[in-house]
Design a protein around this nucleic acid. Structure first.
Lengths: 192, 192
DNA sequence: GGAGCGAAACCGACCGCTCGGTATGTTAGC
DNA sequence: GCTAACATACCGAGCGGTCGGTTTCGCTCC
């Protein structure tokens, strides 16, 4: 039994380095060195550098989609479901801060087809989230004097921005921050 | 009399291309071709590709800092000043959507010293903005149960995210969007 | 006003280097 | 002895930047 798995080690090293210094300025050589393997080993498991990058998107998209679907499937009241979805996605994003850095910074480095797939899946997530808000509007919970796209963007921007300022190990736990941001968002969109 | 200025043409082309396909994947050759000049001409005015990128940051940082200082200097009541600062920075950001795309995506491509300068100047802006919020807290206008850093990040995230979803020429004018986002933010931080 | 001239503006071929990817060789397990 | 899992040396393309040369500009002085 081997004490480490080449695939995972490479993926881990890739995330770290792409987050630290960017996809384009990180060479495959650097990745394999940090992973403690050789280029040959890496290219045995991945077909290209692009695969390394796309893997990050794949994992993030799948993970967040699953979480959201699971929460929606519970059939909770809209307000509870939305609150839960917000807190969960923030916490998840904090768990994957490095992935988030790469995610939002390097889409344009993917191959065109993969860019389109990422866009498509993000839109799906966006739509599912927007539906929650829309339901809340119908129930009179949230204001409808502002386009729903703006409301949703207002929340997604926080997710996006997290990796730019949140430092783990600070005075605030991720749960605290998640609740604070969610609270700010919900206060903003609450019906007057 | 020449009908165009090499410096500006190159800068314009650089912004466009860096926003479209990223700094790293844009070659100097592409930039000069779009600008309609030669590499020799470009390197006569700029010392490096990095200069091209830094110019974008320089302009954005200076512009936004001037705007904020000007608003603060008016000595308006806190609530008015903050509202005005928010709307202004959103409008300005919409005016410079492409610059914004590059600004938030390519910091890590700058030379280390320049990265540090950008960070420094952004922090200055951040602090000036935070002071406004802090004043509002003291006056009892805004909630103080959430760390000020979170409050500020909650707004900056919107600026950051703008270039990811706002499409000019849509149904909403930039003024409308600026007011909507500002309103969401201010509702969120209002004292209960 | 135009000849002369130094400096600035500009051209484009070229260079050194890095990087993603490959091809061929070697080892280990079944 | 066959296959999957690696290792290593290498290639060719593309890149940022340079450098010697040429053109244009601006000004002076007759």
């Amino acid at each position: 039994m081997k004490d480490f798995n080449v695939r995972d080690q490479v993926a881990r090293a890739a995330v770290e380095l792409f987050a630290e210094k960017g996809y384009a300025t990180t060479s495959v050589q650097e990745v394999v060195e940090r992973a403690g393997v050789t280029k040959g080993a890496m290219y045995h498991y991945y077909r290209s550098k692009d695969d390394l990058l796309f893997g990050i998107y794949e994992r993030m998209l799948t993970l967040q989609r699953e979480h959201l679907d699971e929460i929606i499937a519970r059939g909770l009241p809209t307000a509870e479901a939305l609150r839960m979805a917000c807190i969960d996605v923030i916490e998840t994003s904090i768990d994957s801060l490095q992935e988030g850095t790469v995610f939002f910074r390097s889409v344009h480095m993917l191959s065109p087809e993969r860019q389109r797939e990422v866009t498509r899946r993000r839109r799906e997530y966006n739509d599912a989230f927007a539906t929650l808000v829309r339901n809340g509007q119908r129930e009179g919970l949230y204001r409808d004097d502002i386009p729903i796209a703006v409301l949703v963007a207002n929340f997604f921007s926080d997710i996006h921005y997290l990796s730019n300022w949140y430092k783990p190990g600070g005075t605030e736990s991720q749960t605290e921050v998640a609740e604070q941001i969610t609270d700010l968002f919900l206060k903003g969109i609450a019906a007057t």
